[in-house]
């Protein structure tokens, strides 16, 4: 009797979780998958087929943007790691006491402000009538204003800016636990800074590096705001194609195929990242 009661109890407690996961994640994603294999043959008439994927491959504009988005996301992830690592190391191992907690909080603060506002700040600085041009002209370095927006480099800078938090936090957490006596030992044994970095610090920080990279890659790949506001038409992101298929072209089936491709690449690289470093998703996330 008691065991039966306990079973009911677990079932009831699990019910909201199951409803959430099934109704809002599994079924919608399955529907996306199914829809991507549907071809419109008439008004409200559909047939099964690979037509949407063919359409995607036959239009260079689509698959080129796709490849570009994936490559850019990988580069942005690596760059974010490069920018964030010295900062995380400083917060975790160089700064002490109040300065340490202050720097950490200062690092977090900008990311609590909407991504829209952050990008707006960059727009004010970088556009043709922006502050950067104003200063460059005042200093007589240029005579004509330059449009800094809508360039790949600008998008990259914006993506790094947007992603930093998700890299700094996991890195600080792992570096906090690094035993300093290991570094001293390496120093005493004549290992230079580079050797310490390569043989001690980086292996120790690997869980943080992996979770940071996974989060950043995913967020960059799925980014919409930074890519649209700083990149615009000159530097198109794949999510913009997906949005256009759904909202302006009303081709939901092609949009689904594109969305599914993005999901596959995103999941595959997350899986690969975990696999290469021998880690588990639930360990990385918590």
């Amino acid at each position: 009797m008691n065991r039966l009661l306990l079973k009911w109890n677990v079932g009831l407690l699990a019910l909201p979780l199951l409803l959430w996961i099934v109704l809002l994640i599994i079924l919608p994603l399955s529907d996306l998958f199914i829809s991507s294999f549907q071809e419109k043959v008439g008004v409200g008439v559909f047939e099964w087929g690979l037509g949407n994927y063919q359409a995607f491959l036959q239009e260079p504009f689509y698959w080129q943007t796709f490849i570009r988005t994936v490559l850019f996301s990988i580069i942005a992830t690596m760059a974010t790691l490069g920018v964030a690592f010295p900062v995380a190391y400083y917060i975790a191992k160089v700064a002490r006491g109040r300065v340490k907690s202050m720097l950490f909080v200062l690092c977090l603060l900008p990311f609590w402000v909407s991504e829209l506002v952050r990008n707006y700040g960059w727009m004010i600085i970088l556009r043709e009538s922006g502050l950067l041009n104003h200063f460059l002209m005042k200093l007589n370095l240029i005579t004509q204003p330059i449009e800094f927006l809508y360039r790949d480099a600008t998008v990259m800078m914006g993506l790094i800016y947007t992603s930093l938090l998700f890299m700094v936090v996991p890195l600080v957490v792992v570096l906090e636990n690094l035993d300093e006596s290991l570094l001293e030992a390496s120093d005493d044994l004549g290992g230079g800074r580079l050797i310490s970095l390569r043989r001690i610090i980086i292996p120790h920080a690997m869980p943080g590096i992996v979770s940071g990279c996974i989060m950043v890659f995913m967020l960059t790949l799925g980014n919409y705001l930074t890519a649209t506001l700083l990149g615009g038409k000159e530097s198109l992101w794949f999510t913009e194609h997906i949005y256009n298929q759904f909202m302006t072209r009303w081709n939901w089936e092609l949009g689904s195929a594109m969305g599914f491709l993005l999901l596959v690449v995103s999941s595959a690289l997350v899986w690969l990242g975990l696999r290469m470093t021998g880690q588990k998703l639930n360990k990385v996330m918590t």
């Binding site: 994640i25 994603l29 529907d31 995913m218 799925g222 919409y224 949009g255 993005l262 995103s266 996330m285």
Partner: peptide, 22 residues
């Protein structure tokens, strides 16, 4: 538990369009 974590690795745009379709 794995399924509970999954929403974090689905890009927001994809989550949006899949709920729209469903």
């Amino acid at each position: 538990y794995f399924l509970m974590l999954a929403p974090l690795v689905v890009p927001g745009v994809i989550l949006g369009v899949s709920i729209l379709i469903f």
